[in-house]
């Protein structure tokens, strides 16, 4: 996806230097060219002079809230994927964020892996073209219209939610999916239900898949989330 010769460019709007350095470091290790700014005024200037592939925005800045800035960009038809990194992490704040045109909303503090997973998902969504009716991984086959799953010859009986969950993983093959992403995208919840319910649900889906075969594994990525991968792949 990434072109080696011309690296993708990200705008990082963050006024806290330690955090800004951390984010820049994270993005640079994934091959991004990062333009750091610390005020809305500087950010406005930057977006007017350069094109970006990603906007990483802090919310509470010395000269205001970046939601207004993002809203204005969206009104001017700038559709660059934007992720809000913020100290305002409550449910209502998240809703405000999405309503202002944010593609993702990550409350601080966040971990490197969560950040990387979100950025990857964000870019995938931005590049999303067309949904095939059949998704295949190893010998695992998922048919969207028929809502059936086969692992090799074996029919896998899934509940509607399990089907949705597997569909989510299969359309993000080899991506790390965090618990928050699952909560938000599969269950539509903007809060953390506390107990390890997500892990238990994943465990159950894992068992169902394994009933049919061994070609695909739903693995837990320690401290971050989960990943669906073909056996033997890295």
């Amino acid at each position: 996806m990434m072109d080696i010769t011309t690296p993708m460019k990200a705008l990082c709007l963050e006024d806290d230097t330690i955090i800004a350095d951390y984010i820049i470091d994270l993005l640079q290790s994934s091959g991004w060219q990062v333009i750091p700014v610390s005020t809305l005024a500087a950010a406005t200037k930057a977006v007017m002079t350069e094109d970006f592939d990603l906007l990483v925005l802090d919310r509470m800045l010395p000269d205001g809230d970046s939601l207004g800035f993002l809203k204005k960009l969206r009104q001017n038809d700038v559709q660059t994927p934007a992720i809000i990194l913020t100290a305002l992490g409550r449910t209502e704040d998240k809703i405000d964020g999405y309503e202002s045109g944010a593609d993702d909303y990550l409350p601080k503090p966040f971990e490197a892996a969560e950040f990387n997973a979100r950025i990857k998902a964000l870019l995938r969504r931005a590049a999303y073209v067309e949904q095939k009716d059949m998704i295949k991984m190893g010998s695992l086959e998922l048919r969207i219209k028929a809502r059936t799953v086969f692992h090799g010859e074996n029919f896998i009986d899934l509940s509607p939610k399990e089907f949705e969950l597997l569909h989510y993983f299969m359309s993000r093959e080899n991506d790390i999916i965090t618990r928050n992403m699952l909560l938000k995208d599969v269950w539509g919840l903007n809060f953390d239900p506390g107990t390890n319910v997500i892990d238990v649900n994943i465990g159950r889906l894992r068992k169902r898949i394994q009933q049919g075969g061994d070609s695909v594994h739903l693995i837990t990525v320690r401290g971050i989330g989960f990943k669906l991968e073909e056996k033997g792949s890295d």
Binding site: D16, I19, K108, P109, E111
Partner: peptide
């Protein structure tokens, strides 16, 4: 903001 920011730094 005042509590999350230092925790974010700590995390970094």
């Amino acid at each position: 903001h005042e509590i999350r920011s230092p925790l974010m730094r700590l995390n970094a």
